[in-house]
């Protein structure tokens, strides 16, 4: 998995909920795109961010740090973060590093 796919696609918020689809590899470049998109949704008044990891196979350390930043920003704005459709490896990684303690899993 060395290619960097188009990292993010997102749907416009419905009832304050926005879905953001992460790409296959979450690193600095794609992570910052996710971060930017999340901030934009939060600024638009979104109260629930749903990050869909259905396509995600690898998340590196910078990606983890950026996702922690997204969780922190959402928390400061009173918004909820949902992680959905993660594969087993990603769940294990997120659990090991404590991300799952701060989000709802779907």
């Amino acid at each position: 998995m060395t290619t960097q796919s188009a990292v993010v696609s997102s749907l416009e918020p419905v009832d304050g909920r926005a879905v953001i689809h992460a790409g296959d590899y979450i690193n600095k470049l794609s992570g910052e795109q996710i971060e930017h998109e999340c901030k934009r949704k939060l600024d638009e008044g979104c109260t629930e961010l749903i990050l869909n990891f259905a396509d995600t196979e690898i998340v590196n350390s910078i990606g983890i740090s950026i996702l922690l930043g997204v969780i922190d920003t959402a928390s400061n704005k009173g918004a909820k973060v949902v992680f959905s459709d993660m594969n087993e490896t990603t769940v294990e990684l997120f659990e090991m590093l404590g991300l799952t303690k701060h989000v709802t899993l779907a």
Binding site: K28, N60, S61, I62, G63, S65, L68, D72, L99
Partner: peptide, 15 residues
């Protein structure tokens, strides 16, 4: 900036 991300991401540090 990247180095700070790497430390945070390596150990799951919030800030």
């Amino acid at each position: 900036r990247t180095s700070l991300h790497l430390i945070s991401g390596a150990l799951g540090i919030m800030r």
